[in-house]
Design a protein around this nucleic acid. Sequence first.
DNA 1: GTCGATAGTTGACTACATCAAGGTTTGAGG
DNA 2: CCTCAAACCTTGATGTAGTCAACTATCGAC
Lengths: 145, 145
Amino acid sequence: MTTVAQTQLSPAEEAWDILRQLLGAERRRFLAAAAELDLHPAQAGALMKMEPGTAMPMHELAMMLSCDNSNVTGIVDRLEARGLVTRRPYAQDRRVKHVVLTPAGTDVRTRVRGHMAKVPEAIGRLSLTDQRLLRDVLRRAVESG
Amino acid sequence: MTTVAQTQLSPAEEAWDILRQLLGAERRRFLAAAAELDLHPAQAGALMKMEPGTAMPMHELAMMLSCDNSNVTGIVDRLEARGLVTRRPYAQDRRVKHVVLTPAGTDVRTRVRGHMAKVPEAIGRLSLTDQRLLRDVLRRAVESG
DNA sequence: GTCGATAGTTGACTACATCAAGGTTTGAGG
DNA sequence: CCTCAAACCTTGATGTAGTCAACTATCGAC
């Protein structure tokens, strides 16, 4: 019921309108996935941004979550308290601390990403031709920088 | 940099992967738009869900925001304190309270939606043919329920 | 008319956003 | 060198949001 065409929409506008509906559904899935793993949304978001063998500076995490540095401090505190990540000093620049996934954290991260990677029904029920069409258009959208 | 293909992705999976990148960027835009209007994300979300001349029961708002009823109480409290919405009793069912946009609220809502309706660059720079293609595929995705 | 279910509120608790301030470290310029 | 602005992280204060349990009022059905 979010789709209301009071004025005529351009193709791009209408496409974007539909995409935003997907976004709403996606948000729910994300919240549900996080809750199922006993994570708060921000914590789940942080885990998702991390790569298993790769150390990430706190401030970079802040950028990716588009939030304040001081915010990341708290989030990482809690993740660390649960043994999902570790802080590690960074010799090259001692202002920086790196965050690393522990094995337990890697496991949880995999599960969060598993939930989110599942293709939404709306897309899954498209014909294979349409799925390929969609993929190709989207590829062009992001690559033609 | 979110696109990593460690295993071969199906067309749907790859499409979904790209879409999630778009949605991430969208989240930032949403936060920025809300901040610009001095709204917290949940408040902006609530305003977006409301239609100008249409009263909405609190619990329906809770459903749309996928949050608790008690949560909506607080959000509406604050919106009401700023004169953006009003609570109104509902005679047919006196357990229910309706929320209605005030003129000021309607104005703010329009501005929030204006921000969000702006087509992202990635889609905007597609050829018109591709935009139509995208729109058509997405139409099929949501309508073939 | 009783009783289970629903709508909204309240209160307690945690987490998170934002901002200002402070400590440490770095890098660049004098 | 040495200073100094800037970057990184942390802490504390404040307001807001999410979750859960309890409570009131109302509805609907039996």
